[in-house]
Design a binder for these strands. Structure first.
Length: 828
RNA sequence: GCCGGAGUGGCGGAAUUGGUAGACGCAAGGGACUUAAAAUCCCUCGUUCCGAAAGAACGUACCGGUUCGAGUCCGGUCUCCGGCACCA
């Protein structure tokens, strides 16, 4: 052991040791309790950033802690290797995406290893390898077979800069999620996964995700966006077709004064003759707050009260939700209200608040329009609503739905905001969609036995036009699997979110070319052993996209009879961002801290310790250079303690009777047990590593101020130091290994059992009794543990300071909190 | 607009069920060691009153309530952060 702590040598030594001894290679063992710890795999951009460091360090601490607790831990890592940046690099630097990606993976794997992360690399997943994406294609075929994948012409979000279609989830503030270019609409033939088929199940499943943060569950529920209501058919004057609308507020049906349909609604073409005006509406479609409409001149009839109401085409009505047509109730919907004001349409109040406002909404039987400056959207009592007048909204809804169904005017219906998942991308670096277009047979799926459809390497990536695959003759032209005639391959590739929707399942098996369905469905398979993921850790930015798709895919796998579970991730931890100077670290803001630099200067143990200590994992972490220094200082102190006392520690007794220790030593002994307890419970309770580390620091402070004199003292000292090393090892594994060895143990500390505390040893004999007067702290005094309440009361009342304060005043009451506090209530 | 989450010293953050507010760390100030500096070690460190100590008052965004006792519970207000956003 060196006198001075030199992290780089120590860390390299132990990283090699772990790798050589294969300490992190896991094996399914149905006799042992498992723990599957997973961090979201990175995109191999080439550089590890602070966000990665934080994510992976949290996961590593959990994995290492669970290993010491005796679990059979699976802790894998891989690469989300398909995606746009590889193509951008190809355009910019002329490197092939494959070469660029694999080079980055090598680089990043080394960086991860330099952080001492305990991964089982024998299970490494790389999504751009045919042995992996082959199964994307297989899942696609199975979904096609089961009606869960389909092709549809539709308007899609088109990024003019990336020249590709974006999923709804990839559009942020009507701009591209990557380059922020405003998104336009384009009509294209697209492949979709029918995630809406699972909308209800995915929503209900949310309630069983007890180990997930509430905000993520809220976001998922919000995203699925269930709306319960009713569909009603409105007859149109002079037309056979009825206009079907969807509403969640049937209690407002008597207040309809106009109707609006979406520009792409099938009836629009029939109703509107004026093409030019329609184009104006279309150009403002879905943009901004301005609501514009076009009066079709046609009228619909309210089937409930026979009111004759005008039909408009409006830019704010979405075709994809509900029926693409709405009934407008300006008195009780703000958008309709704004629209009515603009086009001077009548407002009819049909709901009054239970507690009438002053001045009233209705005056002499008609709306008090001066008072009505905005829509009344809350519930209330129905007025002017035929036989439903006088009912409360909640009751009226049920009654009206029943009436509509009885008279066959419509039916109750449920709508979701969730749309089907468009997976087609006009890009090169992704999984080819296994489809062939044949002039004679049409759309033909590639047969299972022909998988994988290999992504050709011999393409030129220029960044101009559509997919580079269009220019690859060898890829493009093929034989139709059905008629053997000439056919053309699908050139679209899959959204990379497909790759990450099941990678957690792939980790259950060793890397290489496996028969995935056979492996998954085998009885007592490795999948059934390892899954579900016990702890998943990643950024909150994936709260809806990746996490929802994974839940969907798991259900699809279940319904393909491959697996039995429905939910992939039992517990989810969404770690906060890494902040510097008040903003998220990013290259564009120029506030990044390079992890490599940090590791070189202080070592990865310091980097790990700081990122764990500065904030609890779910909160944002404010970067502080001085804080890093502090973490480094702490490790140096421990090193110094062990170095200075190495002979004592090695030679001292290992067993003494701790009950007969002199006060100083017994204090340290007690503190040690208290620390084991505190560190353990802090980790168990929501992974509060910051307070666990604070407790370790307290113990180290006590060790520092303890001067061993007797043999028993030295044994106590040794015990305390050993426990510090053990408790520190998940956080700072390299230095822990080195110190463990230096104190005369055989490696490896990480194979050692997690320490246990003795409740009796941790308990304090003397307690500081807090004495309050009228709830204010007035005095403190020491009492022995177990002092009865009556005795505590007596001690408090006899306390000198208390007598001084209380004087002759009347004591009204005395409250005793067992073993803690006495509060004396006195009068004036 | 809707839905979440959060507001505690100079800073990051503790306070687990209503019971000593500010653990631990950082920064700052003072001291020891040193020719000097760095490193290390020791002391002080919420605000105000006081020369200091003792002591007291105030203090967990703001206002009010419940309680013997509130950072914690209840009602209201404000601010910040995040998500969704014409979803009928």
């Amino acid at each position: 052991m060196k006198e001075k702590y030199e992290p780089s040598g120590v860390e390299f030594k132990w990283q090699r040791y772990w790798a050589e001894k294969k300490l992190f290679v896991s094996k399914a063992d149905h006799a042992r309790q498992k723990f599957y710890c997973l961090e979201m795999f990175p995109y191999p951009s080439g550089e590890i950033h602070m966000g990665h460091v934080r994510n992976y360090v949290i996961g590593d601490v959990i994995a290492r802690y669970k290993r010491m607790r005796g679990y059979n831990v699976l802790h894998p890592m891989g690469w989300d290797a398909f995606g746009l940046p590889a193509e951008n690099a190809a355009i910019k630097h002329g490197v092939h995406p494959s070469k660029w990606t694999h080079g980055n993976i090598e680089k990043m794997r080394r960086q991860l290893d330099s952080m001492g992360l305990s991964y089982d690399w024998t299970r490494e997943v790389t999504t751009c390898k045919p042995e992996y994406y082959k199964w994307n294609q297989w899942f696609f075929l199975k979904m096609l077979e089961n009606g869960l994948a389909y092709r549809k012409d539709s308007y899609v979000n088109w990024c003019p800069s990336c020249m590709t279609v974006l999923a709804n989830e990839q559009v942020i503030d009507s701009a591209c999620w990557r380059c922020e270019t405003p998104v336009t609409q384009k009509r294209l033939g697209q492949w979709f996964f029918k995630i809406t088929e699972y909308a209800e199940e995915l929503l209900k499943g949310c309630d069983e995700l007890q180990g997930w943060p509430e905000r993520v569950i809220h976001m998922q529920k919000n995203w699925i966006g269930k709306g319960e209501g009713v569909e009603v058919d409105f007859p149109v004057e002079g037309m056979e077709e009825k206009l079907r609308i969807f509403t969640t507020r049937p209690d407002t049906l008597f207040g309809v004064t106009f109707m609006c349909i979406a520009p792409e609604h099938p009836l629009t073409e029939k109703l509107v003759k004026d093409r030019k005006s329609l184009e104006t509406i279309e150009s403002k479609y879905g943009k901004g707050d301005e609501k514009i409409g076009l009066d079709t001149g046609y009228f619909a009839i309210n089937p409930l009260n026979r009111d004759r109401i005008p039909i408009f085409v409006a830019n704010f009505v979405i075709m994809e939700y509900g029926t693409g047509a709405i009934m407008s109730v300006p008195a009780h919907d703000q958008r309709d209200f704004d629209f009515a004001k603009k086009y001077d349409l009548p407002v009819k109040v049909v709901i009054l608040p239970e507690i009438p406002p002053n001045p009233p909404l209705i005056k002499g039987g008609s709306p008090n329009l001066e008072q009505l400056t905005e829509a009344y959207e809350d519930e209330g009592i129905l007025v002017d609503s035929g036989q439903f007048t006088g009912l409360r909204s909640e009751i009226a809804r049920q009654e009206i739905i029943r009436f509509i169904e009885e008279k066959e005017l419509g039916r109750s219906a449920v709508n979701y905001k969730l749309r089907d998942w468009g997976i087609s991308r006009q890009r090169y670096w992704g999984t080819p969609i296994p489809i062939v277009y044949c002039d004679r047979c049409g759309i033909v799926p590639v047969p299972e036995e022909s998988l994988p459809v290999i992504l050709p390497e011999d393409v030129k990536i220029t960044g101009k036009g559509g997919s580079p695959l269009l220019e690859s003759r060898t890829f493009l032209s093929t034989d139709c699997p059905r008629c053997r005639g000439k056919a053309r391959r699908e050139t679209d590739t899959m959204d990379t979110f497909v790759d990450s929707s099941w990678y957690f399942a792939r980790y259950c098996f060793e890397k290489g070319d496996i028969d995935l369905p056979a492996c998954l469905s085998a009885p007592k398979s490795e999948f059934t052993y390892w899954m579900p993921v016990d702890q998943y850790i990643g950024g909150v930015e994936h709260a809806v996209l990746h996490l929802l798709y994974s839940r969907f895919f798991t259900r699809v796998m279940r319904d393909l009879d491959l697996i039995k579970i429905s939910e992939p991730f039992q517990n989810l931890l969404t770690q906060g961002m890494v902040i510097k100077d008040g903003a998220k670290m990013s290259k564009s803001k120029g506030n990044v801290v390079d992890p490599n630099y940090l590791i070189e200067k202080y070592g990865s143990d310091t980097a790990r310790l700081f990122s764990l200590f500065a904030a609890p994992p779910e909160k944002d972490l404010e970067w502080s250079d001085r804080g890093v220094e502090g973490a480094y200082r702490f490790l140096n102190r421990i090193w110094g303690i062990v170095y200075k006392n190495r002979r004592n520690i090695q030679n001292s007794l290992s067993r003494v009777d701790y009950r007969t220790l002199r006060p100083g030593a017994s204090g340290l002994y007690r503190k040690t047990h208290q620390t084991i307890k505190k560190v353990t419970t802090d980790i168990e309770r929501e992974y509060h590593f910051n307070t666990a580390i604070a407790a370790l620091m307290e113990l180290v402070n006590e060790i520092t101020s303890f001067q061993p004199e007797t043999g028993e003292d030295r044994a106590t000292f040794k015990f305390a130091v050993q426990q510090v090393i053990l408790l520190l090892s998940p956080f700072c594994p390299h230095i822990a290994e080195e110190l463990w060895e230096a104190t005369g143990h055989n490696p490896s500390v990480i194979e050692h059992k997690w320490p246990e505390w003795d409740e009796d040893a941790a308990r304090e004999d003397t307690i500081e009794l807090v004495i309050q007067v009228n709830g204010k702290l007035r005095s403190k005094t020491l009492i022995t543990r177990g002092t009865p309440d009556e005795e505590m009361k007596k001690i408090a009342l006899e306390d000198e300071k208390i007598r001084e304060i209380a004087g002759n005043k009347k004591i009204k009451n005395v409250i005793v909190v067992k073993g803690k506090l006495v509060n004396i209530v006195i009068g004036e």
